[in-house]
């Protein structure tokens, strides 16, 4: 038995919009700590990890750890039918092969039930170790989205380099090249407009812009984005969901051929 009531239903709508482009089918995992999802894109280059903690729900009942396989496009279709101010309740019975989304209007005069078929999805679950990152950049999410969009009109790969000067996004393409540098800036009116750079070591990594652009679909979830970089690890692009959790995107870097060749074979 599972019953999760989320007063701010629009959050769930936004979450779905942010991940459905990257992943087609995924298992939602439900436990006493929260409602979560981990899924890779079909080419196994990017991974999305979602967590909505149980405390963020008005009512949260989950008797045992369950996973529900859903087609994200179909789920998004159903959630689109919810109003932005609606309260959304997710319900499923043990052994059932459907999940029900119930939308209540704020005035309680309209209640809709949408039932969706669940699927069997064989998905690999990856263990993501806690890691110390060489550099962590926090910046306005809209700014980051703009940079990714602009650069992808020039090239298909972005180099993200963090140094003392700031964070540099650069690309090269057939028509030319582009460099965008963002400096640390904390003297702003609102804290979410700040750009904060924490750096232990300078770092530079290359990523496919196609994926970065897909991550920025999560921009409506949070006014700031955190980018964590380490030379040996995939980048993490995190959008915090106020008081509830996060959507994190992991992206494997592009590796220069020669580097790979000289890497010690453990």
């Amino acid at each position: 038995m599972l019953e999760l009531r989320l007063v701010q239903g629009s959050l769930l709508k936004k979450v779905l919009e942010s991940i459905k482009e990257l992943v087609n089918d995924a298992n939602f995992d439900c436990s006493s700590t929260g409602f979560s999802l981990q899924a890779m894109d079909s080419s196994h280059v990017a991974l999305v990890a979602l967590l909505l903690r149980s405390e963020g729900f008005e009512h949260y009942r989950c008797d045992r750890n369950l996973s529900m396989g859903m087609n994200l496009n179909n789920m998004a279709k159903m959630l689109k039918c919810a109003g932005n101010d609606d309260i959304i309740t997710i319900k499923a019975d043990d052994g059932s092969d459907t999940v029900t989304f119930m939308f209540e209007s704020p005035t309680q005069d309209k209640i809709s039930d949408f039932e969706m078929k669940l699927m069997d999805i064989d998905s690999e679950h990856l263990g993501i170790p806690e890691a110390e990152y060489h550099a962590i950049v926090r910046m306005p999410s809209a700014e980051f989205a703009r940079i990714c969009k602009d650069l992808s009109s020039i090239g298909d790969t972005v180099v993200i380099a963090v140094s003392k000067e700031g964070v540099k996004f650069s690309t090269k393409g057939d028509i030319g090249s582009a460099n965008i540098v963002c400096r640390q800036n904390t003297t702003v009116d609102k804290p979410e407009e700040a750009t904060v750079i924490e750096m232990n070591e300078p770092v530079a990594l290359q990523f496919a812009l196609r994926y970065m652009n897909s991550f920025t679909k999560a921009t409506p979830l949070s006014s700031s984005v955190t980018i964590s970089l380490s030379n040996e690890l995939p980048v993490v692009v995190e959008y915090k969901i106020a008081e509830m959790g996060y959507v994190r995107f992991y992206l494997a870097p592009k590796i220069e051929e020669d580097e790979e060749e000289t890497k010690p074979q453990a």
């Binding site: 298992n27 990017a46 991974l47 369950l66 396989g69 052994g95 990856l126 993501i128 992991y250 494997a252």
Partner: peptide, 24 residues
């Protein structure tokens, strides 16, 4: 250029998912 894209599996290792599918 294309063959240089890394894969997540080379960084993260598969683990067992503790959850049981609700759909039997």
């Amino acid at each position: 250029n294309k063959s240089s894209q890394g894969r997540l599996e080379s960084f993260f290792k598969p683990t067992a998912n503790p959850s049981v599918p609700i759909k039997r």
